[in-house]
Every structure is written in C-alpha cells, then in structure tokens.
Amino acid sequence: MAADATKSTAGRTVFRHRLSTRAWHWLNALTVIVMLMSGLMIFNAHPRLYWGHAGANADPAWLEIGATPTEGILKVGALTLPTTGVLGRWTDRHGVVQTRAFPGWATIPTDYSLAGARRWHLAFAWVLVIGGALYGVASLINRHIQRDLAPSRGELAPRHIWRDIKDHARGRLPGGEAAARYNILQKLSYLAVIFGLLPLMVLSGLGMAPGVDAGWPWIVDLLGGRQSARSIHFLCATALLGFILVHLAMVVIAGPINEIRSMITGRYRLPAERA
C-alpha cells in the first residue's frame, strides 16, 4: 500500500461494532464476572473435584484446595503447592484468618454464603443463556457470524496463523484497514468462547442439576457423570478467566481508550499501519 493511502486510512473513524454485539458484550461482561465470582463461592462449599458419577470426602479428588494447621494448599493430582494468603488460608477484611478455598475478594458474596451465591449464580445463569441466545439469533440474521467471525480459507492456512501468532507475540497488532476487522487469532478465540466454552459452561452446569439429569439424562451422560460435569464446569471457568485476562491485556496493548470507545459507541479510529 502506498504511503499516501496509509495516511488517509490511519486516523479515519470507522463503524466497527453493531449494537447487538456491543449490548451483548457489556451484558456478558457483567454476567460472566458475577457467574465466576459466585461460582467460586459455590466451589468453597466443597473445594474438591472428582471424575465420574459420584465423589465425596472419602473418594480420591484430582483437585483440592485445603488447609493444614499452618498453610493453605492447592493439591492437583500428586502435586501439592503452598498457597497461603490466597487459597485455603487467608486473612479476611476484618483481619480474621479464614480457611475457605477462595478468598473473600474473589467471591460473591464476600463472606461465606452458599445459599447467597446460588441465588446470584442461578439467576444470572438465565441472563447468560437468554442474552447468549438473543445475540446468537441476531448475529446470524445480521450475518455478524458469517461475515466477521467465520475465518476465510486463506486465514486458516498454517502459515498465516503462525505469522499472526508471531506478530501478536511481538505486540505488532494490525493497523490501517486491517484493524477494522478481526484478525485470525481474534476470530478463533471468539469462536472458541461463543461456540465452545460458553455452551459447555451451560451444559456442564445443567449436568449438575438432579432435576435436569432425570429429564435429560443425555447431558450428564455426555459429560461422564455429575462429578465430571462439575470438574468440566470448573475447568471451563478457568479457561474463560484466562480468555478474559488475555482479552484485557490485548485491549491495553491495542489502545484502551479507542478500543473501549468502539465497544460503547461502535466507532473506532483506525490506528497507523505498522512499517
């Protein structure tokens, strides 16, 4: 592209995000944070994970957050990690030492309440499902999924993906016209979250419900049992948290004001093309 053309695209404001995308983004940002934090409180009621149909204190757990008389510990398989101060043993806001798994700053509510956390979690689950369904339908109708999210054949070429990974690792994000569209790593991660992680979160959540297991046994069977569903739910939540952290880091690298504005108003100022 000629230097003149670059100058004319960079700095130009384009319309990048539709209303349905923006509305779902912010609704989901709130919902997912509430789900994650109330979910950690629910986990605190029994901080052990198992595989299979059943699992309780006498059965072997593949993950456990616990406390010794002096330390907080995280056990994963045969591995035991000291986590005092963060997991298993921490000091609450009143200065009292607690031996719950996740600390108060990470949970909703702050102080231990399984019933309270379930109220939050099971109400916002409806917001997650209804919001996700509306976004899905809207995005099929306005062709957001087909046009913006579906990768082209060329983008899926290993060489293209590898170059994008190298560019991201160096902090070289697309500029000019290319920045108006999602790059392949964005497309793949958004698709993985929208069609992989979020549906699996909902399915594994439903698989833990005894009423759902009686009515639709295929869900819990597909997941390998109720305790497997609980483990998968926790692993998906961890992956979702990882996505959120990388997503936020990318927003900061790409220019937080421009990025956040584009997700509020839809308008995005094209950054300069990199040399």
């Binding site: 009621a45 029994h46 149909h53 833990m208 305790q227």
Partner: peptide
C-alpha cells in the same frame, strides 16, 4: 441412586 448435596458432592 445418586445423592447430590447442595455443597457439590455426590454419593451413590
């Protein structure tokens, strides 16, 4: 049957 506790554990 499988007994499901609100806390999260199950026993058969």
């Amino acid at each position: 049957t499988r007994h499901d506790c609100v806390e999260g554990w199950s026993a058969i």
